[in-house]
């Protein structure tokens, strides 16, 4: 059941990606990217990872807002009349679909007080807890996980931070600093 649903969503995502690449309208492209993100979020819900699903949804909403602000200039026309009702209906139906999938995902989670380790003793987290102290010598298990077992994860985190900081600085920079400085100094004299 879940496999067929995930397969359907994957086909949906592939179609959306092709539309996003091939269409000539920027707005349709952005909305296709948003549809792909929502499908990824529902897939995360189906395989039992609600935290990653909510993160994906939040990131997707932020990306859509930023991309729409970047692609649409000031010629945004507000829609009046019957089409407002149509949009409201579509929104409510989509929210209901997401709600149904969320109910299904939460019913599949293990009960409170019975962790997944007890069901799957060969899970990776069980090894971290049982032998992390002996293998890495670090009494802080979180440290031993993020710097030893999942080191590439923290490496990627470091470089995401690096790219974010330097991207923000590149946006904030003063354009052609030397020229402007000479310009203002000249006006001073």
């Amino acid at each position: 059941m879940i496999e067929t649903l995930i397969g359907m969503f994957i086909i949906f995502m592939i179609i959306g990606a092709i539309i996003a690449l091939e269409t000539t309208d920027l707005l349709s492209s952005v909305i296709s990217v948003g549809a792909i993100g929502v499908a990824v979020s529902i897939c995360f819900l189906l395989v039992g990872a609600p935290d990653i699903a909510s993160t994906q949804l939040v990131v997707e909403v932020l990306t859509i807002i930023i991309l729409i602000k970047a692609t649409i200039r000031h010629d945004l026309v507000t829609i009046e009349g019957d089409r407002e009702f149509f949009g409201l209906t579509i929104t409510l139906v989509l929210l209901f679909v997401l709600f149904v999938f969320g109910i299904k995902a939460f019913s599949g989670l293990p009960q409170f007080g019975s962790p997944a380790i007890s069901e799957f003793p060969r899970a990776a987290s069980n090894r971290y807890l049982l032998s992390g102290f002996e293998e890495t010598g670090s009494s802080n298990i979180i440290s031993s996980i993020i710097f030893d077992y999942r080191g590439i994860d923290i490496l990627a985190h470091i470089y995401v931070l690096f790219a974010g900081i330097w991207g923000a600085l590149a946006i904030m920079r003063v354009h052609s600093r030397k020229k402007k400085r000479k310009d203002i100094d000249g006006k001073d004299q």
């Binding site: 890495t136 010598g137 590439i152």
Partner: peptide, 22 residues
Amino acid sequence: LDNFIEKIFPSSNYRIFSAGLI
């Protein structure tokens, strides 16, 4: 990303100089 210091010199726990590269 191998923690080679801990594997070559197994450290005494709960010290500052332990846990290899961490």
